[in-house]
């Protein structure tokens, strides 16, 4: 593409070498910490206690990873995260699709005002509702439950906004043809339009899942019991004081183990994830 070529400052001439070197150097800075963590995770704890420089030469071991399988709460936390993120994703898709169709295609009293109010919700940061939410959930005895971890996320306006935009972009003639084909409003939604929104569903689903999987603040204050930790909170709880930790290798293995699923997911769905995340940012 001539476009790509001419906007790039990485081209043929001498300046380009410098740029390329900078890109590589920066990439090394990006990767080095990760390699360091992986290296540590492959060493015996005792060896690391003596000298962390031992990372650079064998012997390597996977003992730490085997130890995770036996002892760690990581599995419970992964399960919790799967339930919370999966549940939130499914419910978000359902709610956002219904609402997006409603806002984009149906007319009801106060629709436009309501939509603007929902959009204004995008500007409300989580912290502004955190304390009151915590109190309400306390009264309803929802803390330390899956519902308690899932429900707040269902109010996020982003999905509704995204789906509304997507439904609006589908030609209205399709609805009209279906109306003439004797389809009810719900049939139009379910059989005609929803199948066309699959790309948006993928974007929204991935974004929601990722966001929920990495969410830290609400699970930290709502799921305070160890067995209700999500992976993010659980991992945080293990690393409070590792300066004098004997189990450094084990800790690193746990980190790699916890980070791997999402990185693998990223590798598989790279294109969708990038679209989802930058789409979310552009609003």
């Amino acid at each position: 593409m001539s476009n790509a070529r001419s906007t790039s400052i990485m081209g043929r001439e001498s300046g380009d070498r410098v740029v390329l070197l900078l890109v590589i150097a920066l990439a090394l800075v990006m990767v080095a910490p990760v390699l360091w963590v992986i290296g540590l995770s492959l060493k015996h704890n005792a060896e690391l206690m003596a000298n962390t420089n031992s990372v650079f030469y064998p012997p390597y071991t996977i003992t730490n990873y085997i130890n995770i399988l036996g002892t760690s709460s990581v599995f419970r936390w992964i399960l919790n995260s799967l339930i919370v993120s999966g549940g939130l994703t499914i419910f978000t898709l359902v709610l956002a699709s219904l609402a997006g169709y409603g806002f984009a295609r149906l007319n009801f009293p106060g629709r436009d005002i309501l939509f603007i109010i929902v959009l204004l919700g995008l500007a409300v940061p989580e912290q502004a509702v955190l304390i009151a939410r915590h109190q309400i959930f306390g009264m309803l005895k929802l803390h330390n439950s899956y519902q308690g971890l899932i429900l707040p996320g269902l109010s996020a306006p982003f999905g509704v906004f995204l789906m509304t935009q997507y439904f609006r972009a589908i030609p209205k003639e399709l609805d009209e043809a279906a109306l003439l084909d004797n389809a009810s409003r719900f049939t139009i939604f379910w059989k005609v339009l929803l199948p066309l929104t699959v790309p948006a569903q993928a974007t929204l689903g991935i974004f929601t899942f990722l966001w929920s999987w990495n969410d830290y603040l609400w699970p930290l204050i709502s799921g305070t019991k160890k067995e209700m930790f999500t992976l993010t909170v659980g991992m945080a709880s293990t690393q409070t004081n590792f300066a004098q930790s004997e189990g450094l290798g084990f800790l690193m293995a746990q980190a790699v183990f916890a980070g791997a699923p999402i990185l693998i997911l990223y590798l598989f769905f790279q294109k969708y994830i990038v679209t989802a995340v930058s789409g979310a940012a552009v609003r």
Partner: peptide, 28 residues
């Protein structure tokens, strides 16, 4: 519209993109 016993052909055709030709015709 569905109760008027009328059929319409749109300028953009408005075919249901995810349905086969047969399903497009059978839908109504």
């Amino acid at each position: 519209p569905g109760k008027r016993d009328i059929a319409m052909v749109f300028q953009s055709y408005a075919l249901y993109p995810h349905m086969t030709v047969a399903d497009n015709m059978a839908f109504g």
